[in-house]
């Protein structure tokens, strides 16, 4: 098992503090057979925790509200997560039936071009797993990673037409294809540990596809397809909307800026005997 230390720091800054601000955090790694929390803390400045609970996907959520009349609010989610090496397949205990992951969602709804693209995969399937990888590889070839071409609410179809986007778009496109091909698929937000780079600007996103008799297979279309022990899951959802690490509303604030700083580093390697 490897231990990875993570620190996810988010700071809101307002020139005029909001009348009211509320945030739902999914900033606690989701525990499953592949990853376990060793320590984890959420430290708030200028905000208070209202409640915490597990949502329907099994994500640990924390609801917080901003303190009144405060211009700078910071959230730091930090701790150590133990990761087991696996072949990239996980199972978890969410009660959501698999077929519900075939339901199209607003952000990952296929349009004409995605449906057209999916047609090439409908014949002579070798195995489910092969098909999943085929689609992923094909998309990886087709899409170019590029920041600034898409927005936070760009849909799968819109991004697919542009043939570019960021990890969020790639995941939506892939989810949309998999559901079109009748596979349950879900969005994953989390961290990717990179050997050459501890400091990162944003959380990562990838996809999990449910394959019968196997489990949830992780696929990262924006990188090397295979999701290995370098990936740490924060939250899963039907699409970005219910897996996003931070989701909130501010009322009557002005000039808000959000700064994010993420650090992901390996601590030690423990070999289980």
């Amino acid at each position: 098992m490897i231990e990875v230390a993570i620190k996810n720091f988010v700071e809101f800054e307002f020139s005029k503090p909001p009348l009211y601000g509320i945030q739902r955090l999914r900033l606690t790694p989701k525990e499953n057979e592949k990853q376990k929390i060793i320590t984890w803390d959420i430290i708030l400045k200028g905000a208070r925790k209202e409640t915490e609970y597990f949502d329907h996907h099994g994500n640990f959520c924390c609801l917080l509200t901003f303190e009144k009349d405060i211009k700078t609010i910071s959230i730091s989610a930090e701790g150590v997560v133990g990761i087991r090496q696996t072949i990239g397949v996980v199972n978890d205990l969410s009660e959501i039936p698999y077929w519900l992951f075939k339901r199209h969602t607003d952000l990952a709804k296929p349009g004409r071009s995605i449906r057209e693209f999916c047609k090439q995969f409908s014949d002579d399937i070798v195995s489910d797993l092969d098909l999943v990888y085929d689609v992923a590889k094909c998309l990886k070839k087709l899409l170019t990673y590029s920041i600034g071409t898409t927005k936070i609410d760009t849909t799968a179809e819109e991004a697919f037409l542009l043939k570019t986007g960021v990890c969020q778009d790639f995941s939506h496109i892939f989810i949309s294809c998999m559901r079109e091909l009748n596979y349950p698929a879900r969005y994953v937000s989390g961290y990717l540990k990179m050997n050459d780079k501890e400091d990162q600007e944003a959380t990562h996103a990838w996809t999990e596809v449910y394959v019968n008799n196997l489990g949830w297979v992780g696929i990262d279309v924006s990188n090397n397809i295979i999701v290995d022990e370098n990936y740490i899951v924060l939250a899963t959802g039907f699409d970005y909307k219910d897996a996003k690490p931070l989701h909130g509303i501010q009322f009557e604030s002005e000039n808000n800026s959000i700064k994010t700083a993420i650090k992901v580093q390996q601590q030690s390697l423990r070999v289980k005997i």
Binding site: D55, H56, W99, R103, F238
Partner: peptide
């Protein structure tokens, strides 16, 4: 159920 917007996944398991 799957096609029905009145079905709220948020309520699953609760």
């Amino acid at each position: 159920i799957n096609q029905n917007d009145a079905f709220l996944p948020e309520m699953i398991g609760f």
